Computed example of a mutant assay.
Amino acid sequence: AFRQKLLEWMSHRVHLVYLSAYSPELNLIEILWRQIKYRWLPLTAYRDFATLCSEVIKVLSNYGSEYRITFD
């Protein structure tokens, strides 16, 4: 039934794009978390859980003003 429907969709110029089960580059929150983890958090943020939480909150609170994602 799916294959028949697929042929019908293709006749209407509708094409399916198959994605891998894990596609972090297509998920916007993954892009943000990667920036936070690798660019904006200082190494000292990983000292303990409380420090990590406060540093993440600081980054998220200043996102858009102090912290921005640019695609250059």
Results as ranks from 00 to 15, higher is better:
Ser11Ile: 05
Phe49Arg: 13
Leu16Val: 09
Leu19Trp: 06
Ile29Cys: 07
Asp48Ser: 01
Ala50Gln: 12
Trp40Cys: 00
Tyr63Pro: 03
Ile31Phe: 02
Leu19Arg: 09
Val14Pro: 00
Phe2Gly: 14
Phe49Leu: 11
Arg47Ile: 05
Tyr63Lys: 03
Lys37Leu: 04
Glu8Leu: 14
Ile36Asn: 03
Val56Ile: 15
Phe71Val: 14
Lys58Glu: 14
Tyr18Met: 09
Phe49Asn: 14
Ser20Cys: 12
Gly64Glu: 04
Glu66Ile: 07
Gln4Val: 14
Glu25Ile: 06
Asp48Gln: 03
Asp48His: 08
Arg3Glu: 15
Ser23Tyr: 08
Leu28Met: 15
Ala21Ser: 04
Arg3Ile: 13
Leu52Val: 00
Lys37Arg: 11
Ala1Gly: 13
Gln35Ile: 04
Phe2His: 09
Tyr38Gly: 14
Thr51Glu: 05
Tyr22Met: 01
Ala1Thr: 10
Ser54Cys: 02
Arg13Gly: 04
Leu26His: 11
Ala50Gly: 00
Ile57Ala: 13
Glu8Gln: 13
Thr51Asn: 02
Leu28Phe: 13
Trp33Asp: 00
Val17Glu: 08
Arg39Lys: 15
Asn62Gly: 07
Leu7Tyr: 10
Cys53Leu: 09
Lys5Trp: 07
Thr44Val: 00
Arg68His: 03
Tyr22Lys: 01
Ser54Gly: 03
Glu55Lys: 07
Tyr67His: 06
Trp9Ser: 10
Glu8Thr: 11
Glu25His: 06
Tyr46Ala: 01
Tyr46Lys: 00
Asn62Ser: 11
Leu19His: 06
His12Asn: 13
Gln35Arg: 15
Leu28Trp: 13
Thr51Met: 02
Leu6Val: 08
Ser61Lys: 14
Glu25Trp: 15
Lys58Ser: 10
Met10Asn: 11
Glu66Pro: 03
His12Thr: 02
His15Thr: 10
Tyr67Cys: 04
Lys58Phe: 14
Leu43Lys: 13
Trp33His: 05
His12Leu: 12
Val17Ile: 14
Leu6His: 08
Tyr67Pro: 03
Ser20Asp: 15
Ile69Ala: 09
Glu30Thr: 07
Cys53Ala: 03
Phe71Glu: 07
Arg3Met: 14
Ile57Glu: 12
Ile31Leu: 13
Gln4Trp: 11
His12Pro: 03
Phe2Lys: 12
Leu6Trp: 10
Ala45Pro: 00
Lys37Ser: 07
Leu7Trp: 05
Tyr18Glu: 10
Cys53Phe: 08
Tyr18Asn: 06
His15Phe: 15
Leu7Thr: 10
Ile69Gln: 10
Leu41Gly: 01
Leu28Tyr: 08
Glu66Leu: 06
Ser23Gly: 08
Asp48Met: 05
Val59Gly: 05
Glu55Met: 06
Ser20Phe: 09
Leu19Lys: 03
Leu19Phe: 11
Arg39Ala: 10
Tyr18Ala: 11
Glu25Gly: 02
Ser54Thr: 07
Asp48Tyr: 01
Arg47Gln: 08
Leu41Asp: 00
Ile31Val: 15
Leu60Gly: 02
Asp48Trp: 05
Thr51Asp: 01
Thr70Ser: 14
Arg68Lys: 15
Asp48Asn: 15
Ser11Gln: 14
Cys53Ser: 03
His15Asp: 05
Gln35Leu: 12
Leu7Met: 12
Ser61Met: 03
Ile57Trp: 09
